[in-house]
Structures are given as C-alpha cells and as structure tokens.
Amino acid sequence: LESPVSRWTRSLLSLLADQDGAQLFRSFLEREAAVDTLDFWFACNGFRQMDLREPKTLRVAKAIHKRYVEHSAVSRHLKPATRSYIKDTIKKQQIDSAMFDQAQTEIQTLMEENSYQMFLTSDIYLQYI
C-alpha cells in the first residue's frame, strides 16, 4: 500500500487531497507569504459545491472576488481577462458554479510549477518525512 507521504510527491492534487499534506503545505506557504494561493484554491472548490439558489452563494462569490481576485498575491498572477470576467459576472449578478474555474486553473498551474516544487525540497517537508 502506498504511504500518504509518497502520494504527496505524485502530484499537487494528491498532496491537497490529504489532510496532513494540505496542512504541511499550508505551513510552508505561510512562511513564504503565499498562503492566499492555497486558500483561494480551496475557496474555489468550496464555491463550486454551493447552491446557486441560496442568497449566501452570491455573497461568497463577492467575498472571493474582493479578498483574492481584486487584491492579493493571487490577483497579480491572474490574467487580466480572467479578472475582468469574474468582475463582470459579479456586477451582473449572473454567478455560476464554474465562474472561478479559469482563475483556479491559473493558480493551480502556478503552484504546480513553483511552490509545490519548492515544498518538496523544503526543510519543513524533509523534516516531516
């Protein structure tokens, strides 16, 4: 049986699917001042599961937009077209479950190419294993 730790090295998604893995990666990102990227990624997943008929879903979309898409470490890594698409969607109040998908993909690619690679060689990871 494959150990959880060896799954972490398989992919970023395997790491994030494991509670200890996600927690350790979060600690690493806190140290790198990049934890917003991970919180945004989880917020997108959480948003996708929300019921669009509930009024609070629009409030969450607005909160994700304000907190991450407008101003944060996430914002500057998103394509301008992606940011304006989300802004327009909220302005028109025409939210849908997939409205953050493109932004989430851009941030996931960023983590896969940068922070995830750094994490796998970090002392925080090496000490854990």
């Binding site: 200890d20 917020a43 959480g46 599961q49």
Partner: peptide, 20 residues
C-alpha cells in the same frame, strides 16, 4: 447573520480534506 469573512472561511473549510 454571517459576515462575508465568516462565509468565506466556511467555504474554504468545507473544501479542506477530512481526516483519513
């Protein structure tokens, strides 16, 4: 009535992996 921050935190927590 939850604030926007509370709703956001709940949304993030709901997507976090659960204990094995």
């Amino acid at each position: 009535y939850d604030s926007e921050d509370d709703l956001l935190q709940k949304c993030i927590s709901s997507a976090m992996p659960k204990k094995r």
